[in-house]
Write a protein that binds this DNA or RNA. Structure first.
Lengths: 337, 337
DNA sequence: TCTGGGTTTTAGATCGTTCTAAGTTGCAGG
DNA sequence: CCTGCAACTTAGAACGATCTAAAACCCAGA
């Protein structure tokens, strides 16, 4: 019933050539004569030959497999990123090993060991919050090429693809100031990552540049429930902000919900701006002003960078920073107090 | 710098035993003496040994790798499903090869070949719309165990984990009828899948049972833009529906947006019910009535079923149907016309 | 006919593991 | 002192590919 898969040897036998020749055909080598190639290809098609990439890797050390580690799979920011990665990898005839670190550095370590065991050619890593800064160095010592994406640990020791959060937050802030807002709060998250650090830097810079008032930083769980819950904390800030800039769209959406529950109309009683411009941003009420970061594009760039690194390990480090773009919608109304 | 990974041979040399013994230690065989085991384990730790699973598979035919194919990665229904799968697989010390078919059967075939080449132990497949009904049989002939999930092709030839869409649609329908609605439309999608067929069956059954009027089926692209666009088609149905049941939450959210753009208030001027109860459902305005399907649970079940099948290929086929649960929110207001 | 060169093919070793079958060791019982 | 058995260990083949180095083939030119 489930006949064993034919091997090079089987093909060779039927085609009347040697294993080595069939191997050359499989790898599209120009060394084989046209006639031979056609004959062998015919036999491969007839017997439904599928090359065993694991066995091949054993010899030539290339598994055409890359590992991707993300901290979660529910935020569509990461899944759009993943879509980009997967698309490029498929075009390059590579396969993606996916794992979810759940933002747990220990779990992340386990995953990396597992990936090593499976002989991945390289890894695209969005490091979990709290990842040891020595990790990139350790991976280097393992001989495991890595591209960091969306977040980064260490002293820029690896290729990196990310978004320009500093500029993005700045844009959002200037937009709010342009609408007349002066007292602006930031709704953040608890876990510390480079992505959070950048946003905070963007926030304080923007505050300094525009002369607006830092009305306080509120921290919430990274869920819309957490943000909805945090609405009260925002509303009771002593500096009475008229606008809130949010860590991302999920928090912004949750905050808008919380505001409505507290009988404030987002965009009128309180301006709300998100970050990432997820599809979700258009569906909230009112539609959400946000800063587009094109995670899918970051994913394709990360994949491209890893492929490049695999092809030429000695090239200088590369960084890709996706520019931010402000998307004005209705959650960021003019100041009305 | 990047020292080559130590092999069984290296460990054996240092520990003063044979390759075979080290292999036994790696596989936790009870055959090795306690003393020997400890010594070998010490050496493995010292040299940072990582077992090469690809090489192991070559011999023992188990790669501890499973392929997962989903039709997209942006709908969080699929990513929650994926989260469930990944979680169980990690617990079982397996690794997930992820691919996105983009609902294209041809791409799906390519992916399956690639997975075969990588020697996956089995596949969890959410078949692309238009998948050849012969695919399950073909995979059987390849000797590739498969669990279908969320969608199904063929005559129940494989294990299957899915959601009870028939009951789910029925619940939603009875809920609407209970609110006084009589003329109910269905907002569907173009692509045909078992998931669509089930919903349609649930719809017509529900219509028959409740005595309500089938106010027409409108088809949209499976995006919120598509659904927003379809709002006009819904509004101009000759049967003047007072409620719309939607294929899923993404469409429902888009439809609500389209209705507002056409100056109708969802939940007041037109009742809207979604399907899947994505996180999104709580964030729309008004919050969306939907039918929870727990995709993560379906994912864990699918993973469990595949593991079971791999352990005992001869067991009878298994089906898991996640029951539906109606979540009442505000988008399904009482009939007001 | 022989030589030399290019083109095409191949035998055999190899990658890191597991399996098979046979080996050693130690010790109790006759 | 041998036998038998349990407990442990191991040599060597195998998995399915690729690589290296060499062989075979073909044909033009002397």
């Amino acid at each position: 019933m489930t006949a064993k898969r034919p091997t090079l040897e089987d093909i060779a036998l039927v085609a009347g050539v040697s294993r080595a020749t069939v191997s050359l055909v499989v790898r599209q080598s120009p060394l084989v004569a046209e006639r031979t190639r056609l004959r062998v290809e015919q036999v491969m098609a007839d017997l439904d030959y599928v090359r065993d990439i694991g066995a091949a890797r054993l010899r030539n050390n290339s598994s055409r497999t890359v590992g991707v580690i993300v901290p979660n799979l529910v935020n569509s920011f990461f899944t759009e990123f993943l879509t980009g990665v997967e698309q490029v990898m498929r075009q390059q005839d590579r396969v993606v090993l996916l794992a979810n670190s759940e933002d747990d550095p220990q779990r992340q370590d386990e995953i990396l060991q597992r990936f090593r065991g499976h002989g991945v050619d390289g890894v695209i890593l969005c490091p979990a919050a709290g990842t040891d800064v020595a990790l990139p160095g350790r991976m280097q010592r393992w001989g495991l090429p890595v591209v960091q994406a969306l977040r980064e640990v260490g002293q820029q020791e690896t290729d990196y693809a990310g978004a320009d959060y500093i500029a993005g937050v700045g844009m959002a802030l200037r937009h709010l100031v342009g609408l007349g807002h002066r007292r602006i709060a930031f709704l953040s998250v608890r876990a510390m990552t480079s992505a959070k650090a950048e946003r905070l830097k963007g926030f304080s810079r923007g505050i300094a540049e525009t002369g607006a008032l830092d009305a306080g930083i509120v921290e919430a769980d990274l869920t819309w429930e957490g943000a909805a819950h945090a609405a009260n904390a925002v509303l009771s800030l002593p500096s009475r902000p008229t606008a809130v800039l949010c860590f991302n769209d999920v928090l912004a959406a949750g905050l808008m919900l919380g505001l409505r529950r507290a009988d404030r109309q987002p965009g009128r009683d309180m301006a709300v701006v998100g970050l990432d411009d997820l599809p979700l941003a258009e569906l909230t009420y009112p539609p959400m002003t946000s800063v587009a970061m094109c995670p899918a594009r970051i994913g394709t760039e990360a994949a491209r960078m890893l492929a490049r690194r695999l092809a030429s390990p000695a090239l200088p480090l590369e960084r890709f920073i996706q520019p931010a773009r402000l998307i004005k919608r209705e959650s960021s109304g003019p100041r009305m107090d």
